[in-house]
Design a protein around this nucleic acid. Structure first.
Length: 511
RNA sequence: GGCCCGUUGGUCAAGGGGUUAAGACGCCUCUCUUUCACGGAGGAAUCACGAGUUCGAUUCUCGUACGGGCUACCA
């Protein structure tokens, strides 16, 4: 193990679609660990399967990381000492290592066609073997450089017959690894199949590429999802067979994020079904033109998104739940990451965002909120006014998009008012009250919440009406409905002129 | 089916031989406020099961059950 080297970690997604929140969490844990150790975080694109390649997916991943503030130190676009960072561009590199393994007897050529593979699986499939593997039990019955006579192998190779290179798993050996989260994990090699290392098209599979690139890029710690644990035996063996055992990274297999109901890992489908996002940002599938909603566009703050992801499977041992990225960097510890998967809870996710909005200053929230208003075609020509509105409304906004409903009426008078809640108790005395109230307001210089309330209450006393019975009507006149911040704050923010206009206009609509 | 990983309230979880088994989300009640929130005070709700070790197991060991992952020329 390369103990003296600088910490280097990588996130290695394949550009096949939207970035799942589990992926972002993997990035986050990698990033936190790297930054805590003053190390490097590398983005490597694993595009070895051209059949699954989706145009735009790589840029989308970069955009998501940027939004989250998890910026790589090396990446395809940034470059770095170990470029290229796209595996498709590294294609010529891999073959030699595969060949090296063939020469050392740890791998072999296999010429089986997809049909032959299917036939093998069909032949051996039984209730005792639900999913037959290409392994030490069957490989001598297949067409490969272990089973075929040497002149036949030479002929096939000379004729350029398509073939793959498979690892030759040893029989009945124990391969172990130390996982930073789980401790020791052992596998019996007889149980593991002869995984394809180099594909027919000359591209490496994940198994070969991850080992070769982690070695070449001097990766010291490899964190990935738990779904990789079963194939870790292959990777450990590869490190050994390639003669790089001393440079093997330390492993940590992260628990999965599970669907909130039922069982299984969280998928995009679950989000669609249950009505919450699973991707970090909006993802437009270029093939189907289908748009999948993201946390960003739904109104999440990146800081909240990062925070809630960090708490999914990790905590610092105290009751603290709110952390900034910097605080996470200081407090994070891979050893405290849970072993068990966590069901995703969208309600809790929203709570995090609500907390972050409440704790943010109006100034900090301003740019995003202004953008939102502009998208809604609500012109903001008074920035200071918007900032006041944000300050006034932020505690009742769970999502950034809530600022629209909570704040729009400050800039655009309600088109019609909902008189329903006050209809029953409405009468001419109250109408008179509001007429007079607007007259009094007009006569004052300026109003603030206190003075407006004083005028309002004094007049109510004078007219012998309970102020409480007048507050809801006033709210509805100003807002159009029964929501929003304290009503005199609204009046003060609107200013006396606009307040009077709205009162009079509402009066005209009430019976 | 096989292999691997896991299991504390509905959810996220702290704890790790002796505790009234924290805290948070959500839910409910009350309070504040005659909007909705925020804030405050309460409440219901948990150690999967069975053995073993022990004076004593939620905690350690082993089984069982349950859940999950993997089992592709996908990652």
């Amino acid at each position: 193990m390369a103990t003296n080297n600088k910490v280097r970690v990588r996130f290695a997604p394949s550009p096949t679609g939207g970035l799942h929140l589990g992926g972002v969490r993997t990035v986050l844990f990698n990033y936190l660990f790297a930054k805590q150790h003053k190390g490097d975080f590398i983005l490597r694109i694993e595009d070895t399967d051209q059949s699954r390649f989706v145009p735009g997916a790589e840029q989308y991943i970069v955009d998501c990381l940027t939004w989250c503030g998890l910026i790589p130190d090396e990446s395809p676009s940034l470059g770095g000492d170990y470029a290229p960072y796209r595996q498709s561009e590294r294609k010529p590199l891999y073959r030699q290592y595969a060949e090296q393994l063939v020469e050392s007897g740890h791998a072999y050529y296999a010429f089986d066609t997809p049909e032959e593979l299917d036939a093998m699986r069909a032949k051996f499939k039984s209730e005792h073997n639900a999913s037959p593997q290409y392994d030490h039990q069957v490989r001598m019955q297949m067409r490969n450089s272990l089973s075929l006579p040497s002149h036949e192998i030479k002929r096939l190779l000379d004729e350029g017959i398509p073939h793959v290179i498979r690892i030759k798993m040893p029989v009945d050996e124990v391969v172990g690894l130390k996982d930073m989260i789980r401790g020791g994990v052992n596998f019996n090699t007889s149980q593991v199949d002869d995984k394809v290392l180099l594909k027919g098209d000359g591209m490496p599979t994940y198994h070969l590429a991850v080992v070769v690139d982690d070695y070449l890029m001097k990766i010291t710690h490899a964190f990935r999802g738990e779904e990789w644990l079963p194939s870790a035996a292959v990777h450990v063996l590869l490190w050994k067979y390639l003669g790089w055992e001393d440079a093997m990274p330390q492993w940590a297999h992260l628990p999965l994020i599970l669907k909130p109901d039922g069982n299984g890992k969280l998928s995009k489908r679950d989000g669609d079904r249950l009505g919450f996002p699973v991707f970090a940002m909006d993802w437009l599938d270029p093939k189907t033109n289908e748009l999948t909603k993201g946390f960003k566009e739904l109104g999440f703050l990146p800081s909240a998104f990062i925070n809630l992801l960090a708490m999914l499977g990790w905590n610092d041992g105290t009751t603290r739940e709110l952390f900034t990225l910097d605080e996470l960097i200081h407090n994070f510890s891979i050893e405290r990451v849970h072993k068990g998967g966590a069901k995703f809870d969208f309600e809790k996710a929203k709570w995090f965002n609500h907390e972050w909005i409440k704790n943010s200053t109006a100034k900090a929230l301003f740019p995003e909120v202004k953008k939102l208003f502009e998208q809604e075609n609500v012109a903001i020509n008074n920035d200071a006014q918007l900032e006041r509105v944000i300050e006034l409304t932020k505690e009742r906004c769970t999502l950034l998009t809530d600022f629209i409903t909570q704040g729009k009426f400050f800039f655009v008078a309600p088109e019609e008012i909902n008189g329903e809640p006050i209809k029953a108790k409405w009468n001419s005395d109250k109408a008179n009250f509001f007429e007079e109230f607007s007259r009094l307001l007009k006569a004052t210089d300026t109003i603030d919440a206190i003075s407006a309330e004083t005028i309002f209450k004094n007049l109510a006393t004078e007219k012998n009406i309970k102020p409480g019975e007048l507050q809801l009507p006033l709210r509805i006149m100003l807002v159009g409905d029964k929501y929003g911040p304290p009503v005199f704050d609204i009046a003060a923010t609107l200013g006396k002129d606009e307040t009077c206009i709205r009162i009079l206009s509402a009066l005209a609509q009430l019976p």
